[in-house]
């Protein structure tokens, strides 16, 4: 079912409006919160160079120009990825943000590739065996897991891993191993890079280090997807079209596969998308503080501690853009697989 361009256009237009709103909002925060915006933008510099750095920041922001020009300029800089040099890392802000995104995305994508199918399976399975011991177990488990703080669970997992195997999952890959085998991160997705280079030692090491945080983060999407798909299957089983299919002699397996599952996939995709954007924050918290992985979380903490205002604000803006993009993409996917959505 082809999605008409009109729908995509409308959806994307709305998203761009929202993104611009967020950029304006953050610029206004920069201007009107206590303190000189140029000083903040320059990263609260001290010493003899301070005056010069603040002057540069003032010019970069164009603070002497009227406010609408400043905002337009700022929006332009955001979309061209040109927010200057990071104070803390001494490399372009865009580079810092990109490396953070690839690291966190690797963790999140890994998590979701496992979590969504598992949650779907659990939800369907317990719906089809409603009231069974398996069903009530999954129900109670999902309630408990949904109440568990992810970072705490991550710590418990690390603790268990350390006390049983002596392995402490820390960082994205063993630095020593990576240098000794000549591992070269090209895409920034270490698992992918290691596979492409045939570096199985690094792949295994990276895998062992990604699994514990992924486990902790996966709890939320597994719970949400299982819960939602159970309810959806239950509702689908009550649909008139399932009843009529039964009466026409369609077998149980066909009904489940073609009449029930087809109807729950679009809403499951949508709920997974919502869970995904929620998990980004989860991942940032868990990866940085608990598992010591580089990523958006560690960049956030670093930029805060080093008063690297540009990176902080760039992180906030690009995180929001990412949020909205995921939501938009999910909406478009969902609309394109539901034949009822006349677009």
């Amino acid at each position: 079912m082809p999605v008409s361009l009109n729908y995509i256009f409308k959806r994307v237009l709305l998203s761009i409006l929202v993104v611009i709103g967020v950029i304006v909002f953050s610029y206004i925060l920069l201007l009107y919160t206590p303190g000189d915006p140029a000083v903040k933008w320059a990263g609260n510099p001290r010493g003899p160079e301070a005056r010069k750095a603040i002057e540069i920041a003032r010019r970069e922001l164009g603070l002497d120009q009227p406010i609408h020009v400043q905002i337009a300029q700022f929006i332009y800089h955001v979309f061209t990825g040109n927010l200057g040099l990071s104070i803390a890392y001494k490399v372009p802000v865009s580079q810092v943000i990109t490396s953070g995104f690839t690291a966190t995305l690797e963790l999140l994508i890994f998590t979701y590739l496992l979590a969504v199918p598992l949650g779907l399976w659990l939800g369907i399975y317990s719906a089809l065996r409603r009231g069974s011991r398996f069903d009530s177990f999954i129900q109670s488990l999902s309630v408990v897991l949904a109440s568990t703080p992810t970072f705490w669970l991550g710590a418990i997992i690390a603790l268990i891993s350390y006390s049983t195997t002596g392995f402490l999952p820390y960082g994205r890959v063993s630095y020593k191993l990576a240098t000794s085998t000549g591992f070269n991160p090209i895409t920034g997705f270490y698992l992918l890079d290691a596979l492409i280079q045939g570096n199985y030692a690094v792949f295994l090491d990276a895998l062992l280090r990604i699994i514990p945080p992924a486990l902790a983060i996966s709890v939320y999407p597994i719970g949400v997807v299982a819960r939602v798909s159970r309810t959806l299957v239950a509702e689908a089983l009550l649909e008139d079209y399932v009843r009529s299919a039964v009466a026409w002699g369609v077998r149980r397996n066909t009904i489940i596969k073609h009449f029930v599952l087809k109807s729950i996939i679009p809403p499951v995709i949508q709920i997974s998308g919502l869970a995904f954007v929620y998990s980004i924050v989860d991942a940032m918290v868990v990866e940085s503080l608990v598992f010591g992985r580089e990523g958006l979380g560690s960049i956030l903490l670093d930029s805060l501690h080093k008063a690297d205002f540009r990176v902080t604000i760039a992180l906030a803006i690009y995180l929001t853009i990412f949020y909205i993009s995921v939501n938009t993409i999910v909406d478009i996917i969902q609309a394109s697989i539901d034949p009822r959505v006349k677009i």
């Binding site: 008139d240 079209y241 369609v250 073609h258």
Partner: peptide, 28 residues
Amino acid sequence: SYIPQNPGTSLSPFLTIEEHFYHVLRDT
């Protein structure tokens, strides 16, 4: 066989008419 009461809700919105026929005829 059976003709349901409400035509609007008695066919799966996710399957074409041909697929409805196919699933019924394959299984019976």
